[in-house]
Amino acid sequence: MSTRCWSRSATAGTENAPKCSTWPVLDLALARGLETRIGLEDTLTAPDGPPVADNGALVRLALSRAA
Rank of each mutant, 00 (worst) to 15 (best):
R4G: 06
S21Q: 09
T36E: 08
L34M: 13
R32T: 11
I38R: 03
D27C: 14
D48V: 04
D42G: 05
A10P: 11
G56F: 00
A17E: 09
G33I: 11
L44S: 05
A10G: 08
P50C: 01
A62E: 00
V25Q: 12
A67I: 05
E35W: 12
L44M: 04
R65K: 02
G39L: 03
E15I: 15
V59I: 07
R37P: 11
R37E: 09
A17L: 10
G33S: 09
P47F: 00
A57Y: 00
L44P: 07
I38L: 04
E35Q: 15
A57R: 04
C20H: 07
G33P: 13
L30H: 11
A46F: 01
N55Q: 05
L30R: 14
S21I: 11
G13S: 09
S21R: 09
R32Q: 14
R8D: 08
V59L: 03
K19M: 12
T45W: 02
A62D: 00
W6T: 10
V59R: 03
G39I: 04
I38D: 02
K19H: 13
L61A: 03
C5T: 06
D54R: 03
V59S: 01
C5L: 03
T36I: 08
E41S: 12
S2N: 08
W23D: 11
A62R: 02
A57V: 05
G56T: 07
A31S: 15
E41F: 08
T22W: 09
V25K: 15
M1G: 07
G33C: 10
L61S: 01
S21W: 05
A57L: 01
